[in-house]
Computed example of a mutant assay.
Amino acid sequence: MWLKLHDNNGPIFVNMDNATHFQRVEGQRRTTLVTFAANNGSCMTLQVQESPDEIMEMLWEE
């Protein structure tokens, strides 16, 4: 499932099926997401503006 989230440069589309976890950065208004690609074992860390609660709400709406 793809979600349209936002980083400092604008919209970013994240495949949430590959997200292993996400959490709010303490003291800041950013959420860190970690995604894992099983086909090649790569891992990517993203920082987005949406809160974990907003992300969970988006997931439940899909």
Rank of each mutant, 00 (worst) to 15 (best):
W2T: 01
W2G: 00
W2S: 02
L3G: 08
L3S: 09
K4P: 00
L5M: 08
L5G: 05
L5N: 05
L5I: 01
H6K: 09
H6W: 04
H6Q: 08
D7L: 04
D7V: 01
D7C: 08
D7T: 02
D7I: 00
D7S: 09
N8V: 03
N8T: 05
N8C: 02
N8R: 13
P11H: 08
P11V: 02
P11Q: 07
I12T: 12
F13W: 10
F13I: 02
F13L: 10
V14L: 11
V14H: 06
M16V: 00
M16S: 06
M16D: 07
M16T: 05
D17G: 02
N18Y: 06
A19Y: 00
A19I: 15
T20R: 14
H21W: 11
H21R: 12
H21I: 00
F22T: 02
F22V: 00
F22L: 06
Q23R: 11
R24T: 01
R24N: 10
V25T: 05
V25G: 05
V25E: 12
E26M: 09
G27S: 10
G27H: 07
Q28C: 08
Q28A: 15
Q28E: 15
R29W: 04
R29V: 06
R29H: 14
R29D: 15
R29T: 10
R29Y: 03
R30P: 00
R30D: 06
R30L: 15
T31S: 14
L33E: 05
L33T: 03
V34H: 04
V34F: 03
V34E: 13
V34I: 09
V34R: 12
T35E: 11
F36Q: 13
A38T: 08
N39M: 03
N40V: 01
G41M: 08
S42A: 09
S42L: 11
S42T: 15
M44W: 03
M44Y: 12
T45D: 07
L46I: 05
Q47M: 08
Q47K: 13
Q47W: 01
V48A: 09
V48Y: 04
V48C: 08
Q49L: 14
Q49S: 13
Q49P: 00
E50T: 02
E50D: 10
S51F: 05
S51C: 04
P52H: 03
D53T: 06
E54I: 01
E54P: 01
E54S: 14
E54Y: 05
I55A: 09
I55L: 08
I55Q: 11
I55W: 07
M56C: 08
M56S: 13
M56E: 14
E57N: 14
E57I: 00
M58N: 13
M58G: 07
L59T: 02
L59M: 15
L59C: 14
L59D: 06
E61Q: 14
E62Y: 09
